[in-house]
């Protein structure tokens, strides 16, 4: 059974047409299923967990990065997670802005997402964890005055720029090739002095007195924060054009 989780922002009038088109397309392809609208639901975790318990074979996030992370956050580290890992696939239908996760998975738009759901090409992907939050793509922070503590050493960054910790690469602006199956995170720093830094790590502590960390381009959290990675945690339905092997 397919369970479509519509994020609450899709309640806005401007998305009505695209939702109508989506539902017609899914019916045409024989992919229709149960729809859960998150707008107005307070216990998101409970609702999603209940669908897994009821035997949902595929849970599809309809919305953006935050929708995907809400679903993962509702399941990871709960008693039904074992069932989810064995029996349930996670799909993504991108609508609106902030859809870098879909881009990483090779899903350009809603139309393509429907075809990809039908094809059911699967990949097991690592999951990034920062404090109590989960991320598939990356976290980012202003590089100036950021200190990273990794294993037996620390990195102090003395210039403005961007610092990203990447699980699943979502664009080709970096020279690195991130592998979301290897149990490592890629640290990538590009400063305005045009110097680039990259290295791999499993566990990173981040501090910055003035700036916040942004998770998957959506959620902001304060430092200090600890980032780790869990290997092969989520079964995702992906497109041919995904940004990883």
């Amino acid at each position: 059974m397919h369970v479509y989780v519509y994020d609450d922002f899709l309640n806005r009038g401007k998305y009505q047409k695209i939702i109508n088109r989506l539902e017609i397309r899914l019916t045409d392809l024989g992919l229709n299923g149960k729809i859960i609208r998150l707008a107005g639901i307070k216990n998101i975790r409970g609702v999603i967990q209940n669908e897994i318990k009821l035997g949902a074979k595929t849970v599809i996030a309809v919305g953006n990065n935050q929708t995907v992370n809400k679903i993962i956050g509702a399941i990871i580290d709960t008693e039904i997670y074992g069932d989810f890992q064995k029996k349930t696939l996670l799909g993504v239908i991108p609508i609106g802005d902030d859809n870098s996760i879909a881009v990483s998975l090779g899903i350009k738009d809603m139309e393509e997402a429907c075809q990809i759901l039908l094809a059911r090409r699967l990949e097991k992907i690592d999951l990034g964890i920062i404090n109590q939050h989960y991320f598939l793509n990356q976290i980012s922070i202003q590089s100036l005055d950021t200190i990273l503590k990794i294993d037996d050493y620390s990195l102090e960054i003395g210039a403005r720029g961007e610092l990203r910790i990447i699980n699943l690469l979502s664009d080709s602006s970096t020279k690195i090739q991130s592998n979301p199956h290897d149990g490592y995170l890629d640290v990538y720093i590009k400063t305005k002095r045009n110097s680039e830094t990259h290295l791999r790590a499993k566990k990173i502590k981040i501090t910055n007195p003035d700036n916040k960390i942004i998770i998957d381009g959506v959620v902001e959290i304060e430092t200090p924060a600890e980032v780790t990675v869990k290997r092969d945690q989520v079964n995702l339905i992906v497109g041919k054009g995904r940004m990883f092997e």
């Binding site: 050493y153 620390s154 102090e156 720029g161 720093i189 110097s195 830094t197 990259h198 290295l199």
Partner: peptide, 18 residues
Amino acid sequence: AETVIGASIKVKGNFQGQ
């Protein structure tokens, strides 16, 4: 190279790269 430490970075400690 798997590890690059750029010009704006200061590393302190025992750095064992891959």
